[in-house]
Design a protein around this nucleic acid. Sequence first.
RNA 1: GGGCGCAUAGCUCAGCUGGUUAGAGCACCUCCCUUACAAGGAGGUGGCCGGGGGUUCGAGUCCCUCUGCGCCCACCA
Length: 855
Amino acid sequence: MTTPAHDSRVPEKPTIDGIEDRWAQVWESEGTYRFDRSKTREQVYSIDTPPPTVSGSLHVGHVFSYTHTDCIARYQRMRGREVFYPMGWDDNGLPTERRVQNYFGVRCDPSLPFDPAFEVPTKPDEKKQVPISRRNFVELCERLTVEDEKAFEELWRRLGLSIDWSHTYQTIDARAQRASQRAFLRNLARGEAYQSEAPTLWDVTFRTAVAQAELEDREREGKYFRIGFPAADGSRVFIETTRPELLAACVALVAHPDDERYQPLFGSTVRTPLFDVEIPVVAHRLADPEKGSGIAMICTFGDTTDVTWWRELNLPTRPIIGWDGRILPETPEWLTTDTGRETYAAIAGATSFSAKERMVEALGAAGYVEGDPKPTVQAVKFYEKGDKPLEIVTTRQWYIRNGGRETDLREQLVARGSQLSWHPPYMEARYRSWVEGLNGDWLISRQRFFGVPFPVWYRLDEHGMPSYDDLLLPTEEQLPVDPSSDVPAGFDESQRGAPGGFVGDPDVMDTWATSSLSPQIAGGWEDDEDLWNRLWPFDLRPQAHEIIRTWLFSSVVRAHLEDDVLPWSNASISGWILDPDRKKMSKSKGNVVTPMGLLDEHGADGVRYWAAAGRPGTDTAFDIGQMKIGRRLAIKILNASKFVLGLGAALPTDLDVVTDPLDRAMLASLASVVDDATAAFDDYNYARALEVAEQFFWSFCDDHVELVKDRAYGGRGPEGAASAKAALALALSVQLRLFAPVLPFVTEEVWGWWQQGSVHRAPWPSAAELAGATGDPAVVADVATALSAIRKAKSDAKVSMRADVEAAVVTGDPDALGRIEEAGSDLAAAGRVAHLTFVPAGGPLRVEVTLADQA
RNA sequence: GGGCGCAUAGCUCAGCUGGUUAGAGCACCUCCCUUACAAGGAGGUGGCCGGGGGUUCGAGUCCCUCUGCGCCCACCA
C-alpha cells in the first residue's frame, strides 16, 4: 500500500506568489502552532521571545533575528518537542513616551488634572507641545502602541513566524505589571531591593535617573583650562580641567600619594579662585600623575571618579547642578565672600554650557587662567537614548542588588553565565566582562510616566513629610496597584498628601525591570502555575548581542534571586545587519527599505533564506542578492516537486523496491546530509543546516534527476521505473522537511499537494528512515563527474545538451569505473550516448567523447 | 589600557575536530528555447586563503607576532 499517487492537487503552473497569506490563514485556522499545554516539561521546548520595542520602526534587523529564532522553533517542533513560542510587545518606557510626544505634539505634566474631554492637537507642533495630565498621557501611549503592535503582528505573520498568537503580552499590561510588582516586593522582602539617596547619573533632557547599563560613551571636543588655586603661602597650585563651570562645587584637590611634586601639599589647604572657599589637598590612588598637571579638582559631581573620591575621602557635598541641568538658582550657603556670591549670581540658572563660558571669562579677567585652553577629545557619558551629556545629581532611587557591590553575588552571577549554553560560545565573554566590571547596584527607578509604578506608599508625619523608612505595601493579591490612584490599606483617598496620611511613590520602574521578567510574564509565573510548571526554566533566550549587559544579565539576576536558577538553558545571540559599507544598518536606510516591501518583492521564503544564511552571532550584510537566490531556490523546489510528483512518484512502504544502485547511493548520500543538518540544528546553527540541504538539493536536481529521468519514464522496464520513482518520492519528502524550518511557505505548499497535515508538524527526517538504502555515496559523485565530462564535450562543441553522442570511453581506476558502470545505462541515457565503454587505467577519471554527426 | 570577533575569487560568504589539484552564489565570458523549471540549463575565466615567523610528513585550518577593520569593557580630571 502506498500514499495515493499523483493526483490533481499538483497545479499545472505552480507559483510562490501569494502563498504567504494563504498559508498564514490556514496555520491560524488549523492552530498549527498552538501550544498544547497538556504536554509535560520534558516534552516542551520553551522560548523566551524578545519583545520588540514597538515604538521603534519596523526594521530589516527585526526580520533577520526573528527568522533565526523561528528556524530553531520549527526544527524543535518537527523534532517532536511541543514548542512554546509566545510574542511580547515592549511598549512601556521612554521610547513610547518620546514617540507620543512627537506624534501627538503633547508632553506630560503630572501636576495637571485628568481631562476626560481632551482631544489631541490636530497639527502636532514639536516646538509647542501641549501639556497634559499623566492619565491623558498614558492613554495616548496606549492608543499609539496598539497601532504599532498591529503593524508588528502583520509583519510577523507575513514573515511566517510560527508564533502561538494566543500567547501574547505587553510590558505595560496588567499581567506584566503584576509580575513586575510582585517580583519587586519579593526583592524588597528579601533585602535585595532597597532605596538610597545617592549621587546618580542623570539625564537632564528626560529628567530621569539612568542605569549603568544604559550608558554609552561619545567622543566630544573639549578644552583643558589651566587654573591656579591660591595656596596659603601665596603660591598657586595649578590644575587642568574641562569643566571650570563646576568650580563652585569644588570640595578638594587630589593627587597621587606617591607624587613627590604634591606630597608637601597633602594636609594643607588652598582656596578656590573667585569663590574663595577653603578646600583641602588630599591624596588618592586614583589620581593619575600623568594626566594634566597631576593634580585634579574634585567637584560634587563632575564625573563618576568624583563620586568615588567623595565617598572614599568623606568629602562634603556641594552640588550646584539641578535636575534640569542648569546651575541652581539659589546662591549656596558655602559661598561667603561678596566676590564669590557675585560670581555665582552670574552663572545661576545658566546651562552648563553658558556657565562654562562665563566662568572662563571671569577667571581669565581675574588672572587665574594660565595659557591658552588646550583642545582635547574626551569620551563623555551619555544616556544611550539622550543627546546631552549626563550630569550627576543626588536623588533618592530604588536599586536591586546585582553583584555590583558584593563579591559573593557577583561571583555567583558570573558562574550562572558559565552554566548557560551560549550560541556562539564566545558571547559569554561579553557577559563576564560586563558582570566583572560592575561598579554599583542596578538602579531601577525612573522619574517617568509610562511604566510600571512602584507598589509603594510612604507614611506622612505630622508635618506632611514622607518617612522613607515607613513603607506601606500592598499584598500580592492586590497587584497590580498604582499608588498615585490606589490607596494603602487602612487609609482613604482624603488622607493622600495630608499630615499623618500617605503619599504614593511617584516613580516608575525602568523598562528592563519589567522585561527582565519576560519568561515569568509569558509563562504565567504565579498566575498560571499549571502552565508555568510545563515551561520553567525556559529552553532558549534568543537576542541581540548589544543587550547582553541589559536584558540578558538582568533576567539572570531576577531568576537567580527569585528561584536560584538560570532562566533558560540556551542563549542564541544574533548579529546585526550591516549596510553595504559595513556600518550598522542605519535607521534611515531601514526606513527606505521597509521589511514589508522586501517581503512583497522577494517573497517571505526568499527573505528568510537571506536571514538564515547569516551565521549565528555574525554581523551580516544587507544583501538583496541573497534574497533573490532564496526566491529562486523556492521556485526550484516547486518545479522539482512538480516533476517528481508528476511522474506518479509515491512514498514506498518498503525500501526494497529501491533496487537500482544509483537510487540507493543517492538515498545513502541524503542520509548523511540529514545527519549533518540535524547536528547543525542541534548546535543552533541553522545556517549550516540550510547550507548542506541546499547543496544536496542542487546536485539532486542537476544530476540525479537528469540521470534517472529516462528510467523513471519507463525506458528500462517497470522495476527500474519503480525504483527511481520510489527513491525520488522519498528524497523529496526528506528534502521538503529539511527545508521546512527555513522555507516554511514553499515546503508547505508542496507538502499540501500530496501529504496529509502540515509539513511543520511532520517528523524531522532521520537517517533511520533511509537506512534501508545501503548504497555507496561515491557512486553519486563518480557518475556526476562522468556526466559533467560528457556535458563539457557538448558545451565545447557548442551543441545542445540533447545532441547525440556516438561513443563515450570512460577511463580511470577500476573502483571508480565499477561504480559508474553500475549506473551505466542511466548515464548513457542522460548523455544520449550510443556506445558507452569503460577502460581501466591509472590517473584521474576521464571521458573521451565522440559526438554523433549533427544532422 | 583590557577583552572578543573578523580578514579566503571583483562582490557576499562556506571551508566542522589540520590530509588528496581551495568551494558556493552573484558578477563576467561562451553556449543551449531540453516535454519540472528560460524567474531556466550546461560549460568556463578568476584566489602567493592580510604580512611575517613557528609546530608538523603535511596548515586556509594549530601556536606566536605584526597590520587593518568592527564590537564590548574600562575611574573619561
